[in-house]
Structure formats: structure tokens, C-alpha cells
Amino acid sequence: MRQLVRPRIEINGRPPVAEDVPLPLVNHGHFTAMQVRDGRTRGLDLHLARLDGATRELFGDGLDGDLVRERIRHALADDVSDASVRVIVYWPDGDDAASIVVTVRPPAPDPKSPQSLMSVGYQRPAAHIKHVGGFGQFHYGRTAAREGFDDALLTGHGGVVAESTIANIGFFDGTSVVWPDAPCLHGITMQLLEPRLPDIGIGSRRGPVRLADVTGFEAVFITNSHGVAAIGRVDDMTLPTGHPVVEAAARLYDSVPWDVI
């Protein structure tokens, strides 16, 4: 496999041309992001369902999963088997079908663990959609980085925890992983772990979590397409790390089969 040196972008199965310039400037669309290894990804059916559901909600029509797979394969071509892939969906004014943008970048490394989060009072609009135009996420994520944190933790009224800017967050109470029930995106990694945790003797449930509750949990971790990582600090609160439940969740995610794209 040739090493991917620079990002590769295709729009509807071809390289961008000058007429495509306005497309990414339209701040109304959605996407999914995945790690691809040997032409495969985890949770492919969930990615395709996410794209189809969001296309129906935003634009009133569905998105054919086989077409999405073909677009990804075309962008990977014969020379890239491992990559970070993003599929972005827009619907330009006057067009009778959605436009599919596929970006291919070098594969992401495993996440650093443990990580630190800086809480901010912000929740994404239409949080259940992985939509474009995430100014708030970028702004608070970069603000957190300037303050020495790995990411920002998005919270609502009364310190209700929702998600990080790029990941779901889980809290282990000694029996179950509690996933915040505040408005958030149900990420693919979270969707893969949630029904499988009981298979290894770990409960899984949705419920309210507030910043004031964070230090009362035995372990806190985040999940996204990069993997599972422990959280060792939120603001000035130090959290326990090294709990076996985090490693168990990481192993469980690693055991999820890879689907051929």
C-alpha cells in the first residue's frame, strides 16, 4: 500500500472541479467518520443508517447505502487500504439528488489515555445529527487545548453532562456504564459497545449525569472511532484511572468484527 501523503477528496465519485467550490460553503449537511483498515470498518450498517436517517430528516429523501459504499471504495481506489474516511452529504439547491463528498486521510492512531476535559456550557443544536458547521465544537475544543486539556466537555443547564466535542462519555458506577441522557450524538462506537457490555458482565443504561456527580464514579471514559480512552481529569477534579472496566470496554470494542466496505 502506498503511504497516503495528502488528503484525497472526491465529490460524487470524481475529484473536485471549480464548479464544486460553493458546495462545502453551504452550512447545511451531515457526515459520518470512520476508521478503515484493509478496506473494512466497524459498524458499517450503523454508518449507513446514520447517513440515510439524517438525509431523510434534513432533505426529505433517503440515501442509498450501496451508493455510499461505492463512493468510499472509489475514493480509496486500489492504493489505500488503511485510512480515516469521512462521508459528507449535502443537497445543493436545484439538484434532484444529494451530493456525496468522501475525504480520505491517513489513519488515526489509538487515542491517548488517560485524557483531561474542560467543561463548557454548550450543547450542539440538533445534537442527534452529526451535522456540519460545528463552530461551537471547534471553538471550545481549541479553547480547552489552549488551557492544557485534551478536549472540552459539553454541558447544559445545571451542569448536565452531554458529550465531548468529538466523543461520547461513559461513567461506571460499579455495576453499569451510565451514558448521559442529555441531548447528544449517539456515536457509532457507543452504539457498538452499548448492547455488548452486558455480554461481559457490565450493565449499560442511560441516565442524567451532572458535573457535581463526576467524582462519585469509579471510572470515566470516552468513545469514538479512534477507540476507548480513560478520563483522568475534568476541570480541577482528578478522577481514578486504571480501572479494569475501561480496559474491558477497549477489548470489547477491539473484538467487534470489521465489515467489508
Rank of each mutant, 00 (worst) to 15 (best):
M118I: 05
G158W: 11
G203M: 08
G141A: 10
P195I: 11
H128A: 11
D181Q: 11
S176I: 09
F149L: 08
G148A: 09
R105M: 15
L197A: 00
G133F: 05
V102D: 04
T103Y: 05
T189I: 05
G156S: 14
R146V: 09
T165Y: 08
S204R: 07
T175D: 13
Q137T: 10
L154F: 07
A145N: 12
D199S: 14
H186P: 05
R146K: 15
L197Q: 00
D199F: 08
P195K: 12
A145V: 15
R196F: 09
H139C: 04
G156H: 04
I129W: 01
G174D: 13
D110K: 13
H157F: 14
G136C: 12
H157N: 15
C184S: 07
L117T: 05
P107C: 12
P180W: 00
P125Q: 14
S119I: 06
D110R: 15
C184W: 06
R146W: 10
D110V: 06
G133S: 12
I169R: 02
T155L: 06
P106C: 06
A162F: 06
S116I: 06
D110E: 15
D173K: 13
L192R: 10
G133I: 06
G121A: 13
L193T: 01
G201N: 12
D173I: 08
M190T: 02
I200H: 10
T143Y: 14
D150R: 05
P180F: 00
T189V: 12
P198R: 14
P106L: 10
A108I: 14
G187P: 07
G148L: 09
K130R: 12
N168H: 04
V120K: 10
Q123L: 15
Q137V: 07
S113A: 14
P198C: 11
P125A: 13
A127R: 08
N168Y: 04
A108D: 02
I200L: 14
G201E: 09
A127E: 06
A145R: 14
R124Q: 02
P111Q: 08
D181A: 09
G133P: 11
H131G: 04
D151K: 08
G201S: 13
Q123Y: 01
T103A: 05
S99R: 13
G203T: 12
A152E: 04
N168T: 05
P109N: 14
M190Y: 00
S176L: 01
V160S: 13
Y140M: 03
S176K: 12
D95N: 14
R105Y: 08
G201A: 08
S116V: 01
P198G: 12
G148I: 04
D150L: 07
T143N: 13
A144W: 00
L192Q: 10
L117V: 02
P106Y: 11
K112D: 04
Q115T: 07
A145F: 07
R142L: 15
